[in-house]
Design a protein around this nucleic acid. Structure first.
Length: 423
RNA sequence: GGAGAAAUGGCAGAGUGGUCGAUUGCGGCAGUCUUGAAAACUGUUGAAGGUAACACUUCCGGGGGUUCGAAUCCCUCUUUCUCCGCCA
């Protein structure tokens, strides 16, 4: 959610920047400001009346104490009249605030000045590429065929147990999943991230604070009996740790990481391009989250970008980094880097990580602030990134590393899984 | 799941209808003393809205109510603790 003071002071800048996200903010922001004027006017009126009522109430008390009952009763009647108008104004104020909030939550975050213009993924800027695109020999297979050939992943069994998009990993593949999770967590802790094991169900308040609710309600699995949601990413519980928190400036930056399964309903996305591991309802991911000082958050973003690049390098996967254009960015992000690995048998790039700076967009809703000395609390910046999501890494790994003898395991994972070859 | 108790500022903990945004202690910050530190002493120390700055308003777990007036009384929800039951 954008900050009201920002809209008030820099409306034109906000409109201009939101245009890069192809969002026409003018009408909605003007309405917000109009409501803001109403809000302040109403608040002032209400405050004046409440003040009068407070003064009267005190006087009534004093008069009764002094034994002047008749005069006290007189003031009481006066006070009762004030109450009616204050009640009316309170209702009015609440309604204005609600309208304003409804509008505000519809406005996406303003993109950073570094964000390229554009509408579709084709307009994303390819800022970096590394690693050789492997040339696979004749007869190479996509990962779903390899999974079947070596009995690694059973998609049909998942359908029997749960439904489509809930695969069953078996034997060496299950072990490899575990190895990847441990490898990612070890790397993150070595880089200074505190490991967190959060709940994988959250309440509605958490969903609202990180922005999954209300607009993406349909994307989450919802246990209606207890009104809890299965998390779509560890970002939700880990970021919500800092909901309604005022930190000290010295505590920044805060670096947390966590492994969780992630659940996504992904309603309405079916077809050939989601075959195999490409898109699942349940998958595993290690997430990194940082809370940063506003002056440092873009440095932090570059750190996180380099960190993720290092993971892919160590896994020996060819990858590229895209700076997302305005049209392809998420609602809440100010700047996003997407990481894609090249899946040689499918002959396409697969998104494996997304690293973003949200600036104050999340912290405004979270009320996540920090204090410098005796200063006023200031909103902190939040950032997060996948480091990494497993399924597409596995897909790329299986396809790119296939040999006639079997599938080679990257060296860094061998100590974690205890084998060099899947056959 | 059943019975009882509780929820107050960073923490501990007073406050049961009137001047309480709240006694006090600890912690934090500033100062005095000291070469410096500690100790001691003095002062200061929540958040939101609002204002040029004041003023003013709101907040004592959340929501609602009674009253001229609520941290204090009532209703309701949530959470925590104790006992019992069940259980990995």
């Amino acid at each position: 959610m954008l900050q009201l003071t920002y809209i008030r002071e820099k409306k034109d800048e906000a409109i201009e920047r939101l245009a890069i996200k192809n969002f026409d903010a003018k009408p909605i922001l003007e309405q917000v400001l109009e409501l803001d004027n109403d809000r302040r006017k109403t608040q002032n009126e209400l405050d004046a009346i409440l003040n009068e009522a407070n003064v009267l109430a005190k006087q009534v008390g004093e008069l009764y104490k002094a034994g002047k009952k008749a005069e006290g009763d007189d003031l009481k009647n006066k006070s009762a009249a004030l109450k009616e108008s204050s009640k009316k104004l309170e209702e009015q104020l609440a309604s204005i605030e609600k309208q304003q909030h409804t509008l505000l939550v519809q406005v996406p975050n303003t993109p950073s000045t570094k964000v390229p213009k554009g509408k579709t993924p084709e307009d994303n800027e390819n800022v970096y590429q590394e690693g050789e695109i492997p040339k696979l020999p004749e007869g190479s297979k996509p990962h779903w065929d390899l999974a079947a050939k070596y009995d690694l992943i059973d998609f049909e069994l998942g359908v029997k147990l749960t439904g489509a998009g809930f695969p069953v990993y078996k034997g060496k593949m299950a072990r490899l999943q575990r190895a990847l999770i441990n490898f990612f967590l070890d790397r993150a802790t070595a880089a200074g991230y505190l490991e967190i094991q959060p709940p994988i169900m959250v309440n509605a308040a958490s969903g609202y604070a990180t922005g999954q609710l209300p607009d993406k309600e349909g994307q989450m699995y919802h246990s209606t009996i207890d009104d809890l949601y299965l998390i779509p990413t560890a970002e939700v519980p880990i970021t919500n740790i800092y909901r309604d928190v005022i930190l000290k400036a010295e505590q920044l930056p805060i670096k947390n990481c966590g492994y969780t399964p992630c659940f996504r309903r992904e309603a309405g996305s079916y077809g050939a391009h989601v075959r195999g591991l490409n898109r699942l309802h349940q998958f595993d991911k290690v997430e990194i989250v940082q809370v940063a000082h506003p002056d440092k958050s873009y440095e932090t973003l570059e750190d996180m970008r380099n960190y993720v690049a290092g993971l892919l390098r160590d896994l020996e996967l060819p990858f590229r980094i895209l700076k997302l254009c305005g049209g392809d960015m998420s609602f809440a992000s100010a700047l996003t880097y997407d990481f894609e690995t090249y899946s040689a048998a499918q002959e396409k790039w697969l998104e494996v990580s997304s690293v973003s700076n949200f600036e104050t967009f999340q912290s405004n809703r979270l009320k996540l602030r920090f204090k410098e000395g005796d200063g006023k609390p200031v909103l902190a910046h939040t950032l997060n990134g996948s480091a990494l999501a497993l399924p597409r890494i596995v897909a790329t790994m299986l396809e790119n590393n296939q040999t006639p003898e079997g599938i080679k395991v990257p060296k860094v994972l061998v100590p974690y899984c205890g084998f060099e070859l899947i056959n």
